[in-house]
Design a protein around this nucleic acid. Sequence first.
DNA 1: GTCTATATTGCGATAGAC
DNA 2: GTCTATCGCAATATAGAC
Lengths: 198, 198
Amino acid sequence: MEKTDSRTKLLEVGTKLFSERGLNGVSIRELSQAASTSISMISYHFGSKEGLYSEVLKQQFSSFQEFHELRGRISDPVAMVEEYLRWTFRRHRNNPYLLRFYTSELTNPTPFFGSIVQPVIDEVIRSMAAVIEEGIRQQRFRGDVQPTNAALALAGMVNYFFLSLHATENLISHDPEQDEKLVREYLAIFIKGVAAQA
Amino acid sequence: MEKTDSRTKLLEVGTKLFSERGLNGVSIRELSQAASTSISMISYHFGSKEGLYSEVLKQQFSSFQEFHELRGRISDPVAMVEEYLRWTFRRHRNNPYLLRFYTSELTNPTPFFGSIVQPVIDEVIRSMAAVIEEGIRQQRFRGDVQPTNAALALAGMVNYFFLSLHATENLISHDPEQDEKLVREYLAIFIKGVAAQA
DNA sequence: GTCTATATTGCGATAGAC
DNA sequence: GTCTATCGCAATATAGAC
């Protein structure tokens, strides 16, 4: 029952350390010490340091499954934008490491970007662009809005909030209790921003 | 007149290589080879690899000077938002390395984050929040808009566009000729998003 | 599965000649 | 200012005992 075997422990500390300093910023010595095991366990379980990293990355990006469920359940465009925002806040609050991997891979891609990260981004942006397109078709959003650009703008607003977390600690309250208020603020800006004239 | 001395050359290749793979991803051997000089020139000119990195970082963030000039010249809130967007596009187009340093420092901070990066972010967000506050005072923006959150949302929309560049290559045209169109699209979304009811 | 010990390579930094 | 040569160390990875 005790799942704190060396494999699990290595995945745990790998998640924390890789997220903080990237693939090149962490050595297998440090990883094995932090996991209270020996260097050789990394080769044994994952083949190499990169093997461990790619396993961590896969775990991180598997949380996107929930997005599918959401997309299948909600058809109203405005409601879907709202749930997208809520899902994004929830996801980053539940997993404080995710965004670091996300942006670290965007900025300084490792060999695993193409296979693990890119497909996920692609699908979310495509999906949200389709949502916005549907809003335009229903004449609830302006016809001159570019769906893909707008989807990217939406994703940008909310992800950037988390990306900037520790640069804005002294500018903004980052108390999770405020999240619902922020969701509504971003929702208001975006929906009024793309809305058709009343 | 030939300014391709080793110091200049090291700053050039340092900018390119550090932006692509971060401080830990590049060795002084690789840097000196790319600069067609020897390893010891890095210690000689900059004291250490970190010294070179911090010098590159300083250069990158000095381009924020232009923002001051803008802020001093323009008082109308809507015009200032428009010029902020245009300035951001121009800045990233003129310097394709800047955003990588920016987000790399946000995600995996080096010891230089606090002294070089943080103050710049602080000032831009504070300034734009003040711009939005002025818009609210003039009753052109809604009174329930949170200035700092809105400033962060604005910055997020536009910076995220560049951050996602190579994840969205197959989704969006990244031809710089489209920039003016994008500026107007983001401007429309944001201004309608925060506008007071007509 | 887990360890210790070790092989090998590459790292950052510097001494000293020119 | 620039080079070559080298030091000392830390990196990844693996062999082999238990």
